Amino acid sequence: MGRKTKVALTVGAAGVAAWAASKAVVKPKPRTFKKALAFEDPVVLAKCSGMKDVPDMTMTAFKKCAELGVNGFSVDIRLTKDEEIVLFHDEYLDQTTDFSGRICNYTLAELQQADAGYMLTDKDGHTPYRGTGERIVTLQELLLAYPQLLFVINLMDSPDTYEGSLMPSKLWRLLEESEAEDRVVVTSDFDEQTDRFNLYAQNKVATGAGKDEVKKAFGAYSSKFGHLYTPRADLFIIPEKIGLFRMNTESFMSFLSNLNVAVYYENVNDKETIEKLLNAGAAGFITNHAEAMLAVMQQINY
């Protein structure tokens, strides 16, 4: 046996020993139960944007989705100039309203003068909601309007911005005042934002995983050291694939489920895929096509 072979075997044996030792000593630590995610059946959350027949994230859109029977909403939030929390996806107003510029450059009173139905065009080129009173909605308004529904709240402002630095504390204060702690999940692409929020919430509110946390979890799952992974979030909102990596396997969902982490999928529309994910253990879906999603769920008896 050559020297290189002996070294390789020694290193391999040491690795196995380290794995066995860590598995004997370290036990996975599941997330604490969160009431917001306590659903017996898979849920459907509506984004209420890109619906084509109603303006994005307006009360008209939320009302239509609620009437369909969704379990709740997934909403994007931003901070205004006077530090109010509004529902809006884009940083700039030009795409959906008759205003221009950034959300953070306007007060709430100014923003609510904007026509939120201004840009919606139907198949015939008409603008049926222009001038009909559609306006930008605050998070507080929606929480009050639908106290029975679940909200996934996505912090859009980067933590490096002034607005982003204030958002975690502002959001916590609003949730506390609205007594909504048990019916929301707070998430962000920036894990730093969720961590900042949790400094105020102290694990009283369910949180979602950002991009880095998802990568970390998948890396742990794919390795021999998954037992060392401690989740920092209660919910993963993920697509079926990220790059070359499949996020839709039963084993990955089981890995997260054993840690008391729920998995919701987004950007899924066809019946076959929805059924496959449900059978694999998906806890829910976030969709721009709530009516079609609910119809599929009914067809497959969920």
Rank of each mutant, 00 (worst) to 15 (best):
D56E: 11
A66Y: 15
L278V: 14
W19A: 15
L199D: 08
G243Y: 11
A114V: 05
S100I: 03
F73V: 12
D270F: 02
L68F: 10
G125L: 02
A220C: 09
T32H: 13
V70P: 05
V263H: 00
M1S: 14
L244Q: 07
T5A: 12
H289Y: 03
T96E: 12
S254L: 04
I153N: 14
T97F: 05
P239I: 04
G50S: 09
D182L: 12
D195S: 05
G243S: 06
G219V: 03
E250Q: 15
L294M: 05
N203H: 06
A262E: 09
D122I: 07
L228I: 04
E67G: 14
A206T: 00
M156D: 11
T187V: 11
D195E: 10
E91T: 08
Q202F: 02
K211T: 12
L256K: 07
I242H: 07
A8F: 01
F62E: 10
E250I: 04
L256P: 06
E179D: 15
F255H: 00
T32I: 14
M156C: 13
P30S: 01
P239W: 04
T58L: 05
K241Y: 12
K224G: 00
P239K: 10
E266F: 14
L278M: 15
K224L: 06
T207A: 09
V261H: 01
T107P: 03
E141R: 06
D191A: 08
I136V: 10
T187N: 13
T132K: 15
L93R: 08
L278K: 05
A24H: 13
E163V: 07
A61E: 07
R102F: 12
C104A: 15
L150C: 11
L174D: 05
T107C: 03
V185K: 10
L111H: 01
T58S: 11
V261Y: 00
Q140V: 02
L150W: 07
A116D: 00
D234Q: 00
L294Q: 03
Y221L: 10
L108C: 11
K6M: 12
Y264Q: 14
Q193K: 06
E275K: 15
V261I: 03
D115Q: 06
K204G: 03
E83Q: 10
A262I: 02
D56Q: 11
N203S: 11
T127H: 15
V185S: 07
A46W: 05
G133D: 02
I136M: 08
L144K: 13
W19M: 07
N288Q: 13
L244D: 15
G101M: 09
V11S: 00
R232V: 00
T230K: 13
D234F: 02
M57V: 09
G69E: 02
Q202W: 02
T121V: 15
R3C: 13
V205M: 04
K211A: 14
H289Q: 00
A36P: 08
V137E: 04
M293L: 05
L9P: 02
T97G: 08
R246T: 07
T138D: 09
D41Y: 09
N71A: 10
Y129A: 01
G133H: 01
Y106C: 06
P30T: 01
P30M: 00
L166V: 04
S158K: 12
M253D: 06
T97D: 13
R135Q: 07
Y162P: 03
Y302D: 08
K81Y: 10
T121R: 15
K123Y: 09
V296G: 01
A220T: 05
M253E: 10
T80P: 14
T127P: 04
L174S: 07
C48N: 14
K204I: 00
